[in-house]
Structure formats: structure tokens, C-alpha cells
Design a protein around this nucleic acid. Structure first.
Lengths: 150, 150
DNA sequence: GTAACTGCAAAATATTTGCATCCTT
DNA sequence: AAGGATGCAAATATTTTGCAGTTAC
């Protein structure tokens, strides 16, 4: 059984074509990596995974392209690394809409998008016009909590 | 009239002494800068302001020291720059408690701590244990909204 | 065939470290 | 006087840019 199902392959190709991007090996692999795991990825994560196959510069450019076309988005982080996560379908070409929150595990350092948790509505002081609200929760994730119990 | 009131000078000295830090020119100037403005500052901001007087390395080390001692804290950002803001009194030596949210203006690119806005309580999916919640709002700040009206 | 994408080299930035000297306590 | 802080030089790390060769369409 192939590790990557044919349907996933098609999904990836479709995603790229939708954004009028040529379907290349590096783009497929990097997009695959995002789909294969639930969290967010930093440039470093990706480089570790595919760095022997593709050039570091290609990874930078691929990530930037994906952000520009609305396939992925950056996630604010408390430490100093920019992380990226897959966008939902509503996002496209430049503008993003993400109503979910992000969770960073302080133990395993993975970042998760919690789609179930809706961004709260905040009452801001007079004069401040909110356009986008990002919520970043730090703590212990599901896996690490369960592991600790055993 | 001196630009820096004697009382501020004393306040700065007190802050440093409280953390058992020697009172040096660079520390005073950098702390002064934080007190002089409402927002958050990046290393670059500070270097622009005092870079001719103090070495870039000194600024790095000073900021790190301030973070370690709980005088300032880092603010998560969507772009790629680490930014720092003054801590409240409850913070000390290593651990931080910040119940306020951060606001980044998409027009003037300043970051503000909105102390009046309390971090909302979130209901997370089963298994996730939150320890700290950071809220980052992007939009248009007070000043930029008012300027636009004129 | 052409435009877009990639790899390599190198430039530009950003951050960290070592060490001798100077300053604060 | 002693320990800590600073400045300078240099080592690392990170990100960007230019260009020639390659690939997708």
C-alpha cells in the first residue's frame, strides 16, 4: 500500500491548480507535509523533512508563494519562529479569514489549529477598530496530557 | 525644563534596583524609552533611537536581561519581528502574568498593550490544558482612526 | 517555446559569543 | 577591589537576491 493515497495526490494537485500554480515536486512535497500532520510548521521543520531533497531557498520561496496565494498563513508565536498552517477554503489570494485559535504545547512544542474553538468577540476601548483577532494559547496538548497519565 | 523629569529618573533607578541590576546608562536610556511611549518596541526600534550611543550587542543583552528579570516581556507577532513591552508589577524573575491583550495597528504598525481588555476565558477541547492565553488584535489604532476622520 | 520554478553562489541581515576594558557597587 | 556591564571583533544563523539551467504547461 502506498503511503500517499492517490486521492491525496489529486487533492494536492487540485489545490495548486486552483491557485494557478505550476505543480512541481517541491510544492507537492511541502503541501503534502502540511496535510500529513495536524499542526503548524516552521521553515526549520520543513527543512529538516525535505532539506536533503530541496534547497533551503526553494523552501523559503515556496512558503512565501503559498502565503501569497492563500494556501497557508503565518501564525504569531511567542518564541521567535514564524510558523505556517494550512488555510481553510475561505481564504484566498492575499486575504485571510481565520476564526479558529492556535494552541502551542509547551512540552512537545507543536502548534495546533483548534477549529472547534471560535475566536471570542472582544470589546475594545473607543477608537480601536479590530480587523482580525488572533488567539494563541500555550499549555499542554492532548497527546502530552494523555501520555503523562499513563 | 529637562525633558526627563527627576521623578521618572528615580522611578527608573528604582525599577532596576528592585531587580538587583546595576544602574547603567544604557539600561536607563532603554527603560526610559519604554516608559516614554505607550506601545511595544522591537530591537530595531531601540537601535534606531539609541544605536549611535550604545552598541547593538549591548541592546540585545539589555533586552534579554530585562526579559529574564521580568521588566519587559515579548509579544507574539504575526510578522517576523520580536517586540517587547513593559511588564506590570506582578511579573518578576522569569515568570509572567499578562491578562491584557495586544493590539497591532495595520496602518502605523505600532503595538499597544490594552490593559483595559481582559483576556477572555476559552473553552478548549478535551485534553488541552491552557496555561497562558495571548490575544493579538490587528486593526486600526486610536490615533490612526482619529487622523482619518480629520 | 515560453514563462515559471529551482539550485547554487553570494549578499545582506540578524543574532550570539569571546575577550579585554571600563563602570557600578 | 571585585563582579558585572560594555564595546569591539568575529563567529553563526537567517533571509534575500541574482542568475543560469531546468521543468511545467
Amino acid at each position: 500500500m502506498p503511503r500517499v493515497a492517490a486521492s491525496t495526490e489529486k487533492k494536492i494537485t487540485a489545490l495548486l491548480k486552483r491557485q494557478a500554480l505550476s505543480v512541481t515536486e517541491s510544492r507537492k512535497r511541502i503541501l503534502q507535509y502540511f496535510l500529513d500532520q495536524p499542526g503548524a510548521l516552521s521553515h526549520g521543520d520543513i527543512e529538516k523533512k525535505v532539506g536533503t531533497t530541496f534547497d533551503r531557498v526553494t523552501i523559503y520561496r515556496t512558503l512565501q508563494t503559498f502565503v501569497d496565494r492563500g494556501l497557508i498563513h503565518t501564525i504569531p508565536s511567542a518564541d521567535n519562529a514564524v510558523r505556517y498552517a494550512l488555510c481553510k477554503d475561505e481564504c484566498g489570494d492575499g486575504h485571510h479569514r481565520h476564526e479558529h485559535i492556535h494552541f502551542v504545547c509547551q512540552q512537545c512544542h507543536h502548534t495546533f489549529c483548534l477549529d472547534e474553538v471560535v475566536t471570542p468577540v472582544l470589546k475594545l476601548p473607543k477608537g480601536y477598530s479590530p480587523r482580525q483577532v488572533e488567539v494563541l494559547v500555550q499549555g499542554k496538548c492532548k497527546d502530552c496530557t494523555e501520555t503523562a497519565k499513563k
